[in-house]
Nucleic acid binder design. Structure first.
Length: 416
DNA sequence: TCTGGGGTCCTAGGACCC
DNA sequence: TCTGGGGTCCTAGGACCC
């Protein structure tokens, strides 16, 4: 069997690049990528973290995910712009359309990453040439730069695209692993996060090469199946297929950091309703019902989260049914301390085609029709065209988590 | 006026059944 | 007289990704 040939395409500083291109196209004189700049959430509503940064901003030591105030201390003249998810989806769609011209075996991995199975070109064309074609074409037609990694599996292609940025193509074939990947610090390996790197460094494992050559038995004993997974990754072993049709959605959720601390039950319930509104609508748009409902709470004082979930007997897609369970879950779980963040998540999804009515319930029929009517009005006239009256004077957003106009918003997957 | 929001998968422990 | 052991389901929490 012939070796596979996989490309991993990664947009450089995606959110910031998308914004920069958009501004240039609308007459801006300055390219955000050339100055210290960042996409950052609003500090006033306590969403103030860095979502993406320019290369000049990176030179100040600014990191993605760090609080904006901290970034401003490192670089007082940092230019920040708010996030614009609708724009990112447009850029994402344009990227995917362009890549599809090269292969239909394409896996959308996130808003700014794709895997491509390019095995078809092997023999006739040189992989590097094709990759550079793609890179140049994206730059010319879409205005942003990408880094492309080339290898025989997804893991190595992904690690490869990190080797050189921005606007670059790198190979990381299995025979190049000892030379190109093993010298890197252990944190650079996909799936080694802060908790694992801490454990590994205590074991004297500091580079990817250290891990690759470590005793697998000891690793499995200490880190269970996780140890085996990252040991294989360190050795470049990974053989999952390109999932072109997109994986089954497992669950969906909505959460928010409230712009003030929530200290009473009624307010918490209101926030939960605003979260459930969009979850319910997304369920119905996707044609799903859920059977597990979960509420999560993050305390203001120590930022510790806890959660409570329930499995219900009859799958539902009704906003009010999900909300009813969320209120109950919240009341059972809340420890009474001020709340910073609330979340709702539904899972164990099943198709709503095969309706199974456990009881024939008139109220249920009515509820279903009401949900559908509201969905249709919101889709036609905008999400805020219909709003529950109890939000009017509450100071809270009636819908939390914004509705994407594209219901098939790409799912970010953590496992290749 | 410290640290977002959207996901997936794994594991541990308890309940329950045979 | 006994306190075995396997299997499954459920829940909470932790790990990772972008």
């Amino acid at each position: 069997m012939a070796e596979k040939l996989i490309f991993h395409v990664d947009v450089n500083s995606a959110f910031l690049s998308f914004e920069a291109v958009y501004r240039l196209q609308h007459g801006a004189k300055v390219d955000l990528r050339d100055i210290p700049s960042a996409v950052a959430g609003s500090q006033a509503t306590r969403h103030g973290i860095i979502l993406a940064k320019s290369a000049p901003a990176k030179k100040y030591g600014i990191k993605t995910g760090e609080p904006t105030w901290q970034a401003m201390q490192k670089c007082p003249h940092l230019f920040t712009v708010p996030p614009n998810y609708a724009l990112y989806m447009c850029c994402h769609n344009a990227l995917v359309e362009l890549l599809k011209k090269y292969t239909d075996k394409l896996q959308v991995f996130s808003v700014d990453e794709c895997f491509m199975d390019m095995s078809g070109i092997q023999g006739s064309e040189r992989p590097l040439k094709v990759a550079h074609d793609i890179r140049e074409r994206i730059k010319k037609e879409l205005g942003f730069t990408v880094s492309i990694g080339i290898s025989t599996n997804k893991l190595l292609a992904k690690m490869g695209s990190d080797l050189k940025k921005p606007d670059a193509v790198s190979t990381l074939f299995p025979e190049e692993v000892p030379e190109k990947m093993w010298p890197l610090p252990i944190e650079d390996l996909y799936m080694v996060g802060s908790a694992t790197s801490c454990k590994l460094r205590k074991m004297g494992i500091n580079t990817i090469g250290d891990l690759a050559n470590f005793d697998l038995g000891i690793l499995k004993y200490k880190l269970k199946s996780w140890g085996e997974l990252i040991w294989e990754y360190a050795n470049g072993i990974e053989n999952s297929e390109i999932a072109s049709s997109g994986q089954q959605v497992k669950g969906l959720g909505n959460s928010t950091t409230v712009h003030f601390d929530v200290e009473d039950r009624e307010t918490a319930h209101q926030v939960l309703l605003s979260l459930v509104e969009t979850v319910g609508m997304r369920l119905r748009l996707g044609g799903w019902r859920c059977q597990v409902i979960s509420v999560s709470i993050k305390r203001a004082e120590d930022l510790v989260s806890y959660s409570h979930q329930v499995k219900i007997h009859t799958p539902t897609d009704s906003t009010m049914a999900v909300y009813k369970y969320c209120k109950k879950l919240f009341d059972e779980a809340w420890d009474g301390s001020p709340i910073r963040h609330l979340g709702v998540r539904v899972s164990e999804l099943s198709s709503s085609d095969c309706v199974q009515l456990s009881l024939f319930d008139k109220d249920w029929e009515k509820q279903k029709n009401a949900d559908r009517a509201v969905d249709q009005i919101r889709m036609k006239f905008g999400p805020y065209s219909i709003v529950r009256s109890n939000f009017l004077w509450s100071g809270l957003k009636p819908l939390e988590g914004g509705l994407s106009d594209d219901a098939s918003y790409p799912v970010m997957k953590s496992i290749l």
